[in-house]
Design a protein around this nucleic acid. Structure first.
Length: 111
DNA sequence: ATCTTGACCTAAT
DNA sequence: CATTAGGCCAAGA
């Protein structure tokens, strides 16, 4: 089951193209407000899952803290830029404008 | 089995 | 302002 990881992947897959969200927002949505680290860990373990757009998940400041875990260190930035986002110094410009919050967009999470 | 290390976040100092 | 401390819990050594 590994519920939590799968739930994380399910949410990440719903992030629209060109939008991004944060680890903490996902953790909060799933009812684990203090388990943001686990969301990041789930991403680390999502390499063998092809349909999980891990590049659309950044930390709450819009910084690409996980870029080193991609195949190339530029890959994450390139993927985001190809979706229309602008980046500077590993940080998303106008992060708040592109932020996609599952807590306000998706229906309340239910077990 | 224990110890360490994290794609994090918040609250307190 | 910046820095620390604590909580979270899955893997690897």
């Amino acid at each position: 089951m590994s519920q939590f990881f799968d739930q994380v992947y399910a949410v990440v897959q719903k992030i629209p193209i060109g939008r991004i969200t944060s680890y903490g927002a996902i953790a909060l949505y799933l009812g684990h407000p203090q388990s943001a680290r686990m969301v990041g860990y789930a991403m680390n373990a999502s390499h063998h899952r092809p349909d999980v757009p891990a590049h659309r998940v950044v930390n709450r400041n819009g910084m690409l803290t996980g870029k080193h875990h991609f195949h190339g260190s530029k890959l994450m930035q390139q993927l985001l830029e190809s979706e229309g986002l602008m980046l500077k110094n590993d940080q998303i410009i106008d992060f708040e404008d592109f932020f996609w919050d599952p807590n306000t967009v998706l229906p309340p999470f239910e077990i």
